[in-house]
């Protein structure tokens, strides 16, 4: 149980770290705009860096979103279920998610490896390596798979309430 909670907390912590990317993103863009507007000297690679930070944000935050149950869902039917049925519903959906995301992660990880071996680059004004972003993406997905597995096994053994105890609550809707 302790181990399972530790993994959830790790996911949340990585997610928080990805929050930092927003702050850096803001600064990078500000420097770029000010440089361009007032000194005709835009920040080289500002575009590439911003996109990389977005990848960091999006993918390293996914496991945290899963750990804190921040993903949107439709609860019209599931709200009507008895506690017992709800337990099985929870297990079933976690299992489906685990299977689907695992397959996607497997492919994405394979691609990240081949991209790294080839040294995949993009070329706007200056060359920029893309392969690190592919690795970050795959790492985020791997963490999500681990989190899903932990949620599934943990819920099977101890139930949902105990699994999610003590984790922060986020409201995600726009």
């Amino acid at each position: 149980m302790k181990f399972f909670h530790a993994i959830s907390r790790f996911s949340v912590a990585v997610g928080s770290l990805s929050g930092l990317a927003t702050g850096i993103m803001m600064v990078v863009i500000l420097v770029d705009v000010i440089g361009r507007a007032f000194f005709a000297a835009p920040l080289p690679l500002a575009t590439e860096i911003s996109v990389m930070l977005l990848i960091v944000k999006v993918f390293l935050g996914m496991a945290g979103a899963q750990a804190t149950d921040s993903n949107f869902q439709v609860t019209v039917l599931t709200d009507q279920l008895s506690t017992r049925l709800r337990h099985f519903q929870r297990l079933l959906t976690l299992l489906i998610a685990l299977l689907g995301i695992s397959l996607i992660t497997w492919f994405a990880a394979k691609y990240a490896i081949s991209s790294t071996q080839k040294g995949e680059m993009s070329f706007g004004v200056h060359p920029w390596p893309i392969w690190p972003e592919r690795i970050i993406l795959a790492a985020g997905l791997v963490l999500l798979v681990v989190q899903l597995a932990v949620d599934l096994i943990g819920t099977m053994i101890w139930g949902e309430a105990k699994m999610k105890a003590g984790l922060p609550d986020h409201s995600g809707a726009i």
Binding site: R36, A40, A41, P42, T47, F123, G124, V125
Partner: peptide
């Protein structure tokens, strides 16, 4: 400040401009 990528961006730089992707 000129939006330019790839080879044209080199040309813009050679003329003293700032290429913006």
């Amino acid at each position: 400040r000129i939006r330019a990528v790839a080879a044209i961006a080199w040309g813009v730089e050679a003329g003293g401009g700032s290429p913006v992707p």
